[in-house]
Simulated assay, not measured.
Amino acid sequence: MARLRLCLLVLLLVPLVALPPGAAAATNGFRGVNWADARDNYVDGWVIPTGLTAGDSYDSVRGKADGIITGFQQKLGANTVRLPINPQSVNSDWWGRYKGAADSALSHGMKVIFGYWEANKDGFVDDPNAWNTMWDKVTSDYGGNGNVYFEPMNEPFGYSLNDWVSLCSTWLSRHSDIPRGRVLISGTGYNDNVTGVGAASALTGTLLSLHFYGFWASDTTRAAWTTNLGNRLGSYSSRTIIDEAGAPMTTGLDYSAGHQDGNNFTAYFAATTDLARSRQIGVVYWPGLRSGDTYSITRQSGSGLETTNASGVVQLRWGWGL
């Protein structure tokens, strides 16, 4: 009997030690949207998400964000917002005001992902010293909040896998006080494949960030898009958040069941959300709000938001597991 109890105890303990420290068993707790700059987030200057202005005070940013964040929650069911940062924004007086957006989200019980966008559009960190100063400030301000997550770089397409892993390892060492489970390491290229970073032992315990878009192929079936996405995930679904995925929402496309195969974007979006739901993968839609972007799933309406495509919202919520 004692031996039986010991065996049972070992079996119970095995799942607890099977995952590396900080790793996630699933990421579907992230039901997110990107709140983006109308100029795109690759901007040489302050990043200013739609609805905010460079002249806003902290209180003004916070007040505007309250309406937008509430809209993301009530209209979509989101619980996460991904916000762009760059050294120009953080290493300036804009940061003290821009923080009102993150603070609003956190006060509403949302998770916040800070992601770095470079300005030169070459896939490299523009200025490593300024980048380090930026991250030192952001992690100092928000490292103690367990609902804040950090993405060292968006779409590092200038780096080889080895060089990217080396840069991320250096970031992790510099910010070793941040739990690895709150760091999103972007996939190689345009965040388009996580198999390389997933296999890197130096990045054990981190989350992984994948981007996936319908204009990357011309397939018109869910089956083809499912295979495409599955190959980019490899065996790392449990660590991965798809923190950019989106499709045209203002052009009249119908994303509802029965209208999915036969069109590039509807098949892509159905496959992405179906696979995310089945594998319990978090999705952060691009964009939740960005003026002038046909992919934007909401638009501003007074101090709040309205959705732009009811069937798209239903399909996104399906992918979120709602």
Results as ranks from 00 to 15, higher is better:
N191V: 00
D56M: 15
D126M: 03
F124Q: 06
G100F: 00
Y159S: 08
D126A: 09
G45S: 14
A200N: 08
Y285H: 14
P84D: 07
L52T: 08
R317A: 15
G252D: 08
S301L: 12
S303G: 11
M110R: 05
R31Q: 09
T206Q: 01
E244Y: 12
G158T: 03
L76G: 02
P49H: 03
R222G: 14
V314Q: 13
S238D: 15
A245Q: 12
T298Y: 03
I178G: 04
M110Y: 10
L8K: 11
R299N: 07
E244M: 03
V165I: 12
R82H: 04
G45K: 03
T272M: 11
W95F: 09
R174W: 00
N120M: 12
N79A: 06
D59N: 10
W320Q: 04
M1E: 13
S278Y: 05
I281T: 05
Y295I: 02
F114Y: 13
G146Q: 15
D66Q: 09
S169V: 00
V90C: 09
V138W: 02
T298N: 09
K137A: 14
D93S: 14
P152L: 11
G246A: 01
S169W: 03
N79D: 14
M249Q: 14
Y142M: 01
I241T: 13
G304V: 01
A101G: 07
T221G: 04
L184W: 01
Y190D: 12
I68F: 14
A310D: 14
R174K: 12
I69E: 03
R62W: 12
D243G: 08
K99I: 09
I281F: 01
F269P: 04
P84S: 12
I85L: 10
I297S: 05
P152C: 11
L210V: 08
A2P: 07
T273E: 11
F269G: 05
V90T: 07
R232G: 02
D274W: 01
G214R: 15
V17G: 09
R290T: 08
T188G: 09
N132E: 14
T195I: 08
V33Q: 01
I68S: 08
F265M: 13
T220P: 02
W95Y: 15
H211N: 12
Y295T: 07
Y116G: 09
T272I: 02
G123V: 03
F265T: 03
V313C: 10
C7T: 13
R290G: 07
V183P: 07
I113G: 08
V61E: 01
N120Q: 15
G258F: 00
N86A: 04
S291D: 11
I178M: 07
N191A: 11
Y142D: 04
S238Y: 15
W117G: 07
P287R: 05
A2C: 04
